[in-house]
C-alpha cells in the first residue's frame, strides 16, 4: 500500500481489525485506509470476509450477537467502536446500500422523507426529495409518480432509490455491499456511472464479486482472500489500474486472471 498520502486524505481506516463469529476468526489483521472522495473496491472469493469487513465500517455487525470486533476503525480520529460512540450516529454519517434493493413498502416520496425525518431533518422536504432523487439519477423517471409505491419500480430503479434514501441523511461515507448483483448489465452500468458522479462529494467503499465491476468503477482496489486457517485477509491494496495490470502478489494475479482455486 502506498503510504505517501497524509491522513487528511483518509476518510476511514481500520487498524489491526480482527472480526470473530463466536470462536471463529472470520477476518484477521486488516489495515485498510479508505481515501476520501474516492471509490474503493474490495474484491475476493466467497468467504474471504469482504462483506464482514464492509459491515464493520458502520457497525452493522452489532446486529449479529456472536460477532466480536478487535482493533479499531477510525473515522475522523475517533474509534467508532469506542464505548461512548452511538452506533446510530455512526450509521447516519456512514450510510449503506445493500445487495438487494430494499425500499420500504411505501411511496417513493416517503422512502426518502421517512429516514430524513427520523434523523431530525427540518428543512424543505420537497426540495430534499428532489435533490436526492436527482443525485441518484432517478428524478426524471419518477417525478410524476412520487406517490406511487416504491415496490412498483424496476430493480435498478429501486436500487437507485435506496441510494437516494442513503444520500438523504447526508452521510460522508457510503458503503455498498454488492449493489449491482441483482441488476441487469445496463442497470449495473447506471449504478457505476452514478458512483462516479457521487465520488467528488462522498467516499464510496464497495464490495463486489464482480471483478470487472471493481476494475471499471473504482479508483483503489483491495484484494482479500482466505488464509490457511480460513480467516479472511487482505493480500494487496493499491490503485485499481495497478492491481489489474501489474499486481505484485501472485495470489492477486491468479485471482484476477481467473486462475484461482
Amino acid at each position: 500500500m502506498d503510504e505517501n498520502n497524509g491522513n487528511q486524505d483518509i476518510a476511514i481506516e481500520s487498524r489491526d481489525l480482527n472480526i470473530y463469529y463466536g470462536s471463529f476468526r472470520a477476518v484477521k489483521n486488516i489495515n485498510l485506509k479508505i481515501r476520501k472522495n474516492k471509490i474503493t473496491a474490495i474484491i475476493g472469493p466467497s468467504g474471504c470476509g469482504k462483506s464482514t469487513v464492509l459491515r464493520s465500517f458502520n457497525r452493522m455487525n452489532d446486529f449479529i450477537p456472536a460477532c466480536r470486533i478487535e482493533g479499531e476503525i477510525l473515522f475522523q480520529d475517533q474509534n467508532i467502536y469506542a464505548p461512548e460512540v452511538d452506533p446510530v450516529q455512526v450509521r447516519r454519517r456512514i450510510g449503506m446500500v445493500f445487495q438487494r434493493p430494499n425500499p420500504f413498502p411505501k411511496s417513493i416520496y416517503d422512502n426518502i422523507a421517512w429516514g430524513a425525518r427520523a434523523n431530525g431533518f427540518q428543512g424543505n422536504m420537497d426540495e430534499l426529495v428532489e435533490s436526492t432523487l436527482r443525485a441518484a439519477a432517478l428524478w426524471d423517471e419518477v417525478k410524476d409518480i412520487l406517490k406511487q409505491n416504491a415496490l412498483s419500480l424496476s430493480g435498478g430503479q429501486q436500487q437507485r432509490l435506496c441510494l437516494a434514501r442513503a444520500l438523504a441523511i447526508q452521510p460522508e461515507v457510503i458503503l455498498m455491499d454488492e449493489p449491482a448483483s441483482a441488476l441487469d448489465p445496463i442497470a449495473t452500468l447506471k449504478i457505476e456511472d452514478l458512483m462516479r458522479e457521487l465520488a467528488p462529494h462522498y467516499t464510496i467503499l464497495i464490495v463486489t464479486h464482480n471483478m470487472q465491476q471493481a476494475a471499471r468503477a473504482s479508483d483503489y482496489t483491495a484484494f482479500f482472500t482466505m488464509d490457511d486457517d480460513r480467516a479472511g485477509m487482505m493480500v494487496e491494496y493499491g490503485p485499481t489500474e495497478e492491481i489489474f495490470t501489474r499486481p505484485r502478489d501472485r495470489r492477486t494475479e491468479d485471482y484476477i486472471t481467473g486462475r484461482f482455486g
Binding site: Q212, A215, R216, T240, E241, F244, T245
Partner: peptide, 9 residues
C-alpha cells in the same frame, strides 16, 4: 490503453 483494456473491458 493497456489500463483501459484491463479495467474497462
Amino acid at each position: 490503453i493497456l489500463i483501459l483494456f484491463a479495467t474497462q473491458q
